[in-house]
Design a protein around this nucleic acid. Structure first.
Length: 464
RNA sequence: GUCCCCAUCGUCUAGUGGUUAGGACACCGCCCUUUCACGGCGGCAACCGGGGUUCGAAUCCCCGUGGGGACGCCA
């Protein structure tokens, strides 16, 4: 069975670049009827935190990137790594190294000074005597000559000269495994057939392949994905806005929009831009991923999010809107119209749910805030008769619905010799406090009879 | 510094030896219009440079340039 895995280290939030890796792994497994494994790489106990683990799990769940197996934790498998390492040592494929950190630093500095690639020179390969006061680490014995070939699904064939690869540490002084070693053991134990991961691991691959071979295990298929950069082409960082996926949720992005955006970074299917999850899983193939790095484009994500907001079921959006509104000062859900009605009125004019809550906020705030500039421009004394007429008409309106409101507005506009818009805009300002809202009839319906009449009266009070 | 990877509009990309180099986002203009949007139509805009290979290169090869990554008892 095809098996892919996503193996983040819980040292921070779930990065948007990591999410794309997870997505590609997930899609590939889905596409081939295989399994997607989630493994938490927490061998570095100093930096790993439970908060980060939760953030990863939370983010994956939000996006629907559910693992078929796991989450597995490397921290719970230390015995297994030590066992495998012991075997390597017994077979002479690994050896103790008694070099001190100071010694290693010095060695690297000298190598750099000589213009060489810094790396361990193998000075402990032959040593058999322990050094007093030093707890040894275990190093893997890499071949000294020849090449190691990585047949990458994205890059093609990449050849490394073994002389460029040094003997890496597989067990630290405290007996804990290092990343390179634990991945190899885990991928083998978990039956991972396809390793799909970030570009930054390409250079690590030959050493991992050598360890896998030394262990007599099958070498998985590799696919190294290009990196995702910030809009300015630099490495993605906090200053580029949201790098933490959960921030996208907070900002009102829909998970399917984020996924759709991410899947198109490095992958395409002709000219198609919109992909449902089902389409992605049917069409995606890691061999179609292109090799060059891509930049994050917030504009395009926004556009996609809007596409999904226009199409999503109102009930779902209502839930998102509820959360957005709830997080807002002065907004009281009970004080306004049903959320689904608001969603329908605003879905074509909101890029994110955050923005929707922002512009629909006036429906739920008890205090009325009038934009003075708008009032100065649209609430002119000359309008008083028309507004008065409208007020009367609305008071007598039996049925407070968009259609009846529209009739009332149209009738008053006609009677006063005004265009619909000439009446609508002042009413909008009077009722919403601003110049922007859904169509005025819809707006009046949403604001509700009581408030409309009260605000109209208040506006009239200003004019008279 | 050494090694590895990458290179089509501003951005994401299609393209796999012969195309007026296509689409999308953004931007600009027009239309629609009840504000804002949505939508429709149109426009601007690219093969990093130099050598080869070939009848013919965005496409294949080499060099350069630029960008990125790796070089930890981090992952």
């Amino acid at each position: 069975m095809i098996k892919t895995r996503f193996a983040p280290s819980p040292t921070g939030y779930l990065h948007i670049g990591g999410v794309r890796t997870a997505l590609f792994c997930w899609l590939y497994a889905r596409r081939h009827g295989g399994h997607f494994v989630l493994r938490i790489e927490d061998t570095d106990r100093e930096r790993s935190t439970q908060v980060a683990v939760d953030a990863i799990l939370d983010g994956m769940a939000w996006l629907g990137l559910d693992p078929d197996e796991g989450p597995f934790y490397q921290s719970q498998r230390f015995d297994r790594y030590r066992e495998v390492a012991a075997r390597l040592l017994a077979e002479g494929k690994a050896y103790h190294c008694w070099c001190t950190r100071e010694e290693l630093d010095q060695m690297r500095a000298q190598q750099q000074a000589r213009g060489e690639r810094p790396g361990y020179d193998g000075r402990c390969r032959q040593r058999s005597e322990p050094r007093p006061g030093v707890t040894p680490v275990l190093r893997f014995r890499m071949p000294l000559e020849g090449d190691t070939v990585v047949d990458d699904q994205v890059r093609g064939r990449v050849v490394f000269d073994n002389r460029e690869i040094d003997d890496l540490i597989i067990l630290r002084g405290d007996g804990s495994p290092t990343y390179h070693f634990s991945v190899v053991v885990d991928d083998a134990d978990m039956g991972i057939t396809h390793v799909i991961r970030g570009d930054d691991h390409l250079n690590n691959t030959p050493r991992q392949i050598r360890m896998i071979e030394a262990l007599g295990l099958p070498v998985p298929v590799y696919a190294h994905l290009p990196m995702i950069l910030g809009p300015d082409g630099a490495k993605l960082s906090k200053r580029h806005g949201a790098v933490n996926v959960l921030e996208y949720r907070e900002q009102g992005y829909l998970p399917e929009a984020v996924l759709n955006y991410l899947v198109r970074l490095g992958w395409a299917h002709g000219d198609q831009e919109l992909f449902s999850i089902e389409e992605m899983t049917r069409l995606f193939d890691v061999t179609d991923v292109n090799a060059s790095a891509a930049r994050i484009d917030p504009d395009k994500l926004n556009w996609l999010n809007q596409q999904y907001i226009k199409a999503a079921p109102a009930a779902r959006l209502a839930e998102g809107l509820r959360a957005q509104l709830a997080a807002r000062e002065g907004c009281e859900l009970a004080a306004g119209p049903p959320l689904e009605a608001v969603v329908e009125a605003f879905r074509e004019r909101a890029v994110t749910l955050h923005e929707m809550a922002e512009s629909a906020g006036f429906l739920y705030r008890s205090e009325f805030v009038l934009d003075e500039k708008a009032a100065a421009k649209h609430l002119k004394p000359a309008l008083a008769p028309a507004l008065q007429m409208l007020q009367q008409r609305l008071e007598g309106l039996a049925d407070w619905r968009r259609e009846t409101l529209h009739e009332a507005l149209a009738a008053v506009a006609e009677a006063c010799g005004l265009g619909f818009g000439k009446l609508g805009q002042p009413v909008r300002v009077a009722v919403t406090g601003g110049t922007v809202s859904p169509p005025i009839d819809v707006t009046l319906e949403l604001v509700g009879r009581e408030r409309v009449l009260a605000r109209l009266a208040k506006a009239l009070g200003r004019l008279l």
